[in-house]
């Protein structure tokens, strides 16, 4: 190797001054990107649903769903659940940042409880709605959107539960709380997806 090449290397590595970059953590960033992807997928799914619904109404002149088939009590309570779960997820992050393991576990547990309750309420609501996929296409569309949202919530529960377990094992602390922040971010996005479903399916019917 020539001395000239070595000098060039030196100029790049040492002589050219530049400030250090303060950048978000990579795991949090990747979770953010995945969250954007998930949200786009659900936005598209709901978009297709709304298009189908508008087409049905235009052709038949009939309502897509009636108040009788979709009671609002359960959807509204589910909204309350996911809203509270978003707050408790942030509480878990705050606790980990402050090395408060007990509160972090309490907050994580509560968040998971809200998530499971949301799934239970959804199944109860579906039993009231008496949808049959093979009976009519409207049911297929509704079940597709709701089913995908439940699948997302299950993924969020698994992610947060694993993060919680790692917190118990001392994996996260005030020095490194990226994992918990990432799980909370994914949780909040799954909560936002429910808000989308709540408005598109249950409210506007």
């Amino acid at each position: 190797m020539s001395t000239a090449e070595v000098t060039v290397y030196d100029k790049i590595s040492a002589d050219v001054e530049a400030p250090e970059q303060a950048r978000p953590s990579v795991l949090l960033m990747a979770t953010g990107l995945v969250s954007i992807s998930v949200f786009m997928g659900f936005a598209a799914l709901v978009g297709f649903y709304l298009t189908e619904r508008a087409g049905f109404r235009a052709v038949t002149g009939e309502p897509w769903l009636t108040e009788a088939t979709v009671p609002l009590t359960q959807p509204n309570f589910m909204l309350l659940s996911v809203g509270l779960s978003a707050i408790t997820a942030l509480w878990a992050v705050y606790s980990v940042r402050n090395d408060d393991t007990a509160n972090a576990l309490l907050a994580t547990g509560l968040t998971l409880l809200f998530g499971v309750s949301q799934i239970a309420q959804t199944f109860f609501l579906l039993s009231i709605m008496e949808l049959e996929a093979s009976a009519d296409e409207r049911s297929v569309w509704i079940l597709s959107v709701i089913g995908a949202q439940i699948a997302l919530m299950i993924l969020a529960i698994i992610y947060l539960a694993l993060t919680g377990l790692r917190t118990v094992g001392g994996g996260y602390s005030s020095k490194d709380y990226e994992g918990m922040a990432s799980a909370a971010l994914f949780w909040i996005v799954s909560a936002l997806v429910y808000v989308l479903v709540w408005y598109a399916i249950y409210i506007t019917k």
Binding site: A44, E137, V140, S144
Partner: peptide, 23 residues
């Protein structure tokens, strides 16, 4: 890609369910 490809996945989900249900 992160924003566009999920739209195709959403299309696949709907198609799968509609196909499985016979629609």
């Amino acid at each position: 890609g992160i924003m566009i490809l999920p739209v195709t996945i959403a299309e696949l989900v709907i198609t799968y369910v509609r196909f499985s249900a016979g629609f």
